[in-house]
Design a binder for these strands. Sequence first.
DNA 1: GTCTATAATACGATAGAC
DNA 2: GTCTATCGTATTATAGAC
Lengths: 191, 191
Amino acid sequence: MPRQSDKRQRLIEAGKEVIYRQGYSRTTLANIAETAGVPLGNVYYHFKTKELLARAVIQSRMDDLRRRVELSDANPDPGERLVEFIMFSLDRSKQVAAHGCPYGSLAQELDKAEKETPLGRSAAELLQIQLDWMTEQFHAMGRESDAEQLAADLLARLQGYCLLANSLDDPAVMEHGFHRVAAWIRSQSPR
Amino acid sequence: MPRQSDKRQRLIEAGKEVIYRQGYSRTTLANIAETAGVPLGNVYYHFKTKELLARAVIQSRMDDLRRRVELSDANPDPGERLVEFIMFSLDRSKQVAAHGCPYGSLAQELDKAEKETPLGRSAAELLQIQLDWMTEQFHAMGRESDAEQLAADLLARLQGYCLLANSLDDPAVMEHGFHRVAAWIRSQSPR
DNA sequence: GTCTATAATACGATAGAC
DNA sequence: GTCTATCGTATTATAGAC
């Protein structure tokens, strides 16, 4: 019997799923509670407000992202670290075509009109983390002077393919795009 | 005295503005009515439901897009048509940093959980129109075999820079990115 | 065509029993 | 810690006077 029950974690997992599929604004606490198998009134014991639950959801997404980055960091070659990171995402192409990028779509919605609240700022970190890590890899590839530019180009393309795949409802747009990006990375030698 | 008053058009303009800044879900008909200077109850004379008003807003965005494309079509060189289209958008970099791309952010939000309704489908057209036109230009540049790929790469980058500029709250990300895209287009000669 | 008043409902949040 | 019942409010939408 856990000191604190697993309901809190179940609510976070349910929140990730439902908010990813419907967006934050359209998601009600009743949706999340039902998905988690928790009565509505009990949600408020674990999270005092909807925003605090969303904060925990974003935090969990950030943890996922950091774990994914750490996996790729095991690779000795910085270019191949980037390629590996990209290739991991391809497993999710069908979900991305159906619901968008779990990081990018959240950042876009919450940055909109919530830019002042901690919620919008912390959603933006989902992209910032990726950008920083990508910049590091280009640095390690010997591109000191333009690493930031290259990282912006890389992340912009990835996010753009996800948006297109979602709008066109076609996973192949993402798959083909990501493969072209991987080839582009491998063509980037030290300047 | 117009046969049909200008209130309908004022509501559409107000809807474009408010939905762009807040997103569709967070926008209430009261918000739009107030911005348009129209009493709430009167909105329903012009648009029977919120969704029908949104449809008119999307239609108006499509008209804007088509007018922008027609402007660039006056240019005799297809590559320069693309560059011109991109450069036009740079006027809006501050707004994009504040609220995202007016087409892309709408398409993303409405494709989410509304994919079955006409609303989601018609928002997706905001990107499809651009993609089709870009494909035509690459065709005209002599890139018959890979015009669609190039158009996807181009639009993905543009949308990606807008998303990044919005998240990082930095218009320069979009400005620099768009200039690099323009240089890339000019480097695309017939294959 | 325009506007006020209000109905109907959905949702975030709370009270309080267990 | 858990759950039921419910409050207060915001929002879509309608009724009906002008």
